[in-house]
Structure formats: C-alpha cells, structure tokens
Design a binder for these strands. Structure first.
Lengths: 335, 335
DNA sequence: GTGAAAGCGCTAACAG
DNA sequence: CTGTTAGCGCTTTCAC
C-alpha cells in the first residue's frame, strides 16, 4: 500500500500538505492540489483504514453476532444488515454464536477491544434459556451500543427491532378459525426461544377465546426426527384440520406429510406458517406464509445502530421498532 | 477502553514497562509484573486491536466475499470459515456481492485499504458470465492473497478449494444407469456457473458413454417459476425415470412434483441431487443427496489462507484442494 | 500556501 | 530492571 509519506517524498512536499490536498483543504494551492491528486490517482492511493481508525477512535465497523447462519431468516437479516451498513459506509464483522452462550460472550469480548463501534445481534438459544444478560449490559456500559433483533433480551436497555410475533400468530389462528376449522394444531421447532413463546401465546389466546377446542401443541426438539414426529402427531390426532407452524420447516413438512397421508390440502386441512419465499417452493401446494421481512429488519437494525453511533448524545432513550409481518396467502389455506 | 498509558500513570511506571510486563518480558521484575497484571485484570485491560494492527501491519482479519448468503451451501461454507478462522485467531469481515461483478470489485477495493490481510471468496455469477478476473489479479499483486472456493476463476493464480463436481455428477449418473434407468434427465438452476457446467459435463459424459439415451437437460432460469417449469418438463417428457439435480431446490421440487403427478418415487423414478442435510427434510421420500461438506470446504479455505499469511515466503506455489463429495442414499433411489 | 509537530495506542530497539 | 525514544499512517493545530 502506498502511503502519504511516499507521495510526499516523491512530490517534494510535506506529508501534511499531501494530506490536506487530498482532503480538499482550502489552505493548499490549486496547482499543488492538482499535482498531489494526480500522483495519488496514479498510485491508487487510499488512506489506510487502520491508521484512520486509530486516529479518529472509530472503526466504521459493526460487530454482528448471529446465532445460526444456516437459519434462512437469520441469514436474510444478515443480508439486510450488510447492505444497509455498506450503504451508510460501514463494514460488518460477523461472528456466529452457534446458539452458545459461551461463544456469544467470547465474541462480544473479542470485538470490544476496539475492533468495532457497536453491535447488532440476536440472542443465542442457550442465553435465552439461561436468561443471562450481564455480558450485554457490560458491553453497553463500556460505551459500545447494542441493537438486538428478533430474539431480544427484555431486561437489557437497548435499541431493538422485533416482529409482531404474538399478533401475527393470533391473527393467523383467527384466520383458520374463520375457515371454520375445529381442530387447529400449533407445531413448533422453536419453543425454547422468546419468539417461539410469543407465537405459542398468540395461538393459544385465539383458540381459548373461540371456545371450540382446546389448544393442541406439538413441540419438536432439535434432536427429534422432524418428519417422523410430525407424521406420528398427525396420525395420532386424526381430526386435525388446521396447522399453524412456528417455524418454516414445520410448515413445509406438515403439508408434504399430510398430502402423503392422504389429506387434501387445503380441502381437509389448512396449513399456515412462518416461512420465507424461498422455502415456499418446497411444498405442494405452496405454504400460506407469515412473512417476517427479514431484510427490512436487518436494514432497520443497521440504521438504528449507526444513528446512535453518529449522535453526540449517547444517552438517548432506547427505541423498540416493530416490523409487522404480512400474510401471503397461497393454496394451503381456503380463504 | 483503558489504555497502557492510564495503567502506567496509576502505577507510576512507564508505558513500556507496563507493555513488557503484560507481554511477559524477561526484562521486568517479578513484583512489577504482578502489580501490573493485577491492575490490568482489575480494569479488564485488552490491548487496542487497531493500534496493534497499525503497529504490526497486519489485522488478523480476513475479508470474505460471498455471492449469496441465502444459498444454504454458501452460508454453510461461511460458517466453516468463521469457525476455523476464529480458532486460528482471526476475525472475518463479510461482504455479500449479491452475484454482482460491480459489488465484488467494490468490496475488494474497499477492504484492500488495510482492513484485511487477505481474502476468501466465491466468484459472483456475473463475474463468471463476463469472465472478468483483473480485479482479482490486481488484489493479489498488491500483496493480498486470495483463496477461492467452489466457484473459482481458473485464470487466476491463487489457492483454491473445490468440489469434485464433474466426478460426483458422473458417478451419480452412472448410479442411476446401474439402476437400469433409461431416461435420465439433468435439471439445473445453476447452469451459468462454473460448477453448473462441470456438473452438466459429468452427467453428459456418463450418458453418452452408456449409449442408451441422449442427454436430456432442463436449464431453469432465475426468473422462471421453479415448480411450474419442472412440472411441465415432467409432463412433456413422460418417460423420464431418473433425475439428476444440480442444485438443492431442483431435487426437492422434482420429487414433490413427481409424487404429485402420480409417479411413485423411487419405483417409477429415481431422484438424486446436490443438497444439504437440512433440505432433505423437505421432500417425501427424502432426497438421495450428493453432499458437498460445506463446512470442511470453509475450514480448508481458512487454513490455506492463514497458512499463506503466516509464511515468510509469499511466493510459494499455489495449491488446489479438492474436497470430495459423498453420496448419501435414502429413499429417492433404488439401490 | 506550506511545513513542523503532536498524538491516537502500541511495541521494541536502545540507553541508562 | 526500568525508561526513553522512534515509528506504524494519518489528521490537525499551530508556526512560519
């Protein structure tokens, strides 16, 4: 990499002159500016990012901690974060907590050494189960702001971007009730997560209000065979005529399994679930989906963090932004 | 963040003494070391990463450029890279080229300003179509090594990690021929990519060698309706009794569509395809898959890059590592 | 209009 | 055993 020093030497001027010329300072003579810029152009000069960071005490880099990059929703949020951050002149350093509290703590510590100006993260499953939040609070108190998305720690005072999980599931369930479904089941692969609990509550509320059935809930564990579990559930509860899926795989598998068992979807059974567009190709008929607008969530998170980073008053009130889901109806439901 | 300066002041010693004490230099007295370390511990001192990078002229950070984070395979490679890099003491800055040549160039330039020590990347689709490689060569000549994985540019002299695409597809096709299939189709959603072409050639070679049929190839474009295209293809070619899918979605959709059209899988039709374990839950029966070991590919790429970064002799010969696929047979094929 | 010097936080050669 | 100094690349204040 070519440095100011080298340019200065070659031009027989001082380093500061070169620096000023490149930064369009009024102080420098027109022709000098021109000479400097030409040589800089020739050598493809770019200011050294590290030196700049040190000098200005900010890195223009955001630490992003994702629990699981193989989760399509989380990957899409990451995409949204990256794009928006880039547009606003920031890079992202990605760490994957792999749902582990320990790794989450490590990543936070590792990047709090001046590598990043702040964090965007979604809380790891283990962290949510153990309900630990000290590492978040400590990071924030060190002056590194955090924006949490989707899976958030309610006890931590920071900006948040969330989905209307409760309402969305409540409304989805109501939708199936309006189709006159009498035995609607709730299937979840995410029952340990904050969002999973919200979705379950939304479902239960709608069911309990309607007085036609009791809640019927299938919680799938990570180690279970997803297909088999759903198959035996459907076999055991033969009168199921509706399914609300809390995660994308469960919805897809429910449809494919139901069809396989001889159900007509949606004639005999309606299926609705949280999923993304890409997944929807994987079932026949396509799944009526609750879309979470992952990219928008990511973009919002990036905006909120960068906004806070660029504010002079750091101690502004924290905000929680709710990105509403939308329902995309296809052929797996009636109305 | 607490600095050496502050520690030094509080301890009434010089900055260098503190630095040396913390770095276990032999020069410093035992009790001084102890005092320094205790205070550092108390204040949670960590050396400022940016200052270190500037001083040592290396960032211990790798730039990773991924064409599409929503592609499950690529996401999994990223996971592998991140994990291995972390284990070896490196962080990763992630950029998403979104299959765009322009964005790929930008990312390369943006991070070549001292932000990273080298790159790991998979070539964007547009780049492969236009066959541009100058930006890669330029980066390398600036002293920033590149490791390419999966989609590589053959004209660029650098380390590479690839999959045995040709052989894997050749063998897979042979497998179906051994099942006595007489009309095996090749379905691809990735025909513009280097890997897509290799896979197609592997299929064609096996078919042509066997003399029982002509190659029958369906190339799906990004803008096509994936389900409909495959459905009409299967309807038009009623005698298809085998499918080799070059991408994960095509395999899943082929099975679900075939079943929907009344085919018995695998009795009437065998389906095999490149896919990952997670996808395999999305079809009934599960897809017999060619597994690419994405995490291992990522880990290998990280190792190769870091290895090169830590070598004194930069101009060693470049290596190409082939990570062999493995075939996981399930219920969508006969034998 | 240009340059010298200080300083961001750190390490390391050199002096004492 | 400890301290002084220089320097990584850059910006910026202050002299000239």
């Amino acid at each position: 990499m070519v440095t100011l020093k080298q340019l200065a030497k070659e031009l027989n001027v001082s380093i500061s002159t070169v620096s000023k010329a490149l930064n369009n300072s009024e102080e420098i003579g027109e022709d000098t500016v021109k000479r400097v810029k030409e040589l800089a152009e020739l050598y493809n000069y770019t200011p050294n990012k590290v030196a700049l960071s040190l000098k200005q005490n900010k890195t223009k880099t955001i630490g992003v901690i994702i629990p699981n990059i193989l989760n399509h929703f989380l990957a899409k949020v990451l995409f949204g974060i990256e794009r928006e951050a880039n547009n606003l002149g920031y890079n992202i350093i990605t760490c994957i907590s792999n749902e582990s509290l320990e790794k989450e703590k490590e990543s936070l510590l590792l990047l709090a050494n001046g590598s990043v100006d702040g964090f965007i993260l979604s809380v790891a499953e283990e962290t949510q189960i153990k309900n630990e939040v000290d590492h978040f609070k400590k990071t924030i108190s060190q002056g590194l702001p955090i924006v949490m998305f989707d899976r958030v720690a309610h006890d931590v005072l920071c900006d948040k971007v969330i989905v209307d999980d409760f309402d969305a599931t409540y409304n989805a369930t109501k939708g199936l009730l309006l189709e006159n479904r009498k035995n609607i089941a709730f299937v979840s692969n995410v029952s340990d997560l904050s969002i999973g609990k919200l979705r379950e509550r939304g479902y239960s509320k709608a069911i309990l209000e309607h007085h036609t059935q009791e809640p019927l809930i299938l919680k799938i564990k990570k180690k279970d065979d997803h297909q088999k579990t759903i198959k035996s559930f459907l076999k055991k509860n033969k009168n199921i005529d509706g399914v609300i899926a809390a995660d994308s795989s469960s919805g897809i598998i429910a449809i494919n399994t139901a069809v396989n068992l001889g159900f007509k979807v949606p004639k005999d059974m309606s299926v609705m679930g949280f999923a993304s567009k890409a997944d929807s190709n994987h079932s026949l008929p396509r799944l009526t989906t609750i879309r979470q607008h992952a990219k928008i969530i990511g973009a919002n998170a990036a905006q909120m963090l960068i906004d806070r980073l660029q504010k002079i008053h750091l101690n502004e009130d924290v905000k929680t932004k709710i990105v509403k889901t939308s329902l995309v109806k296809t052929k797996s439901t009636l109305k």
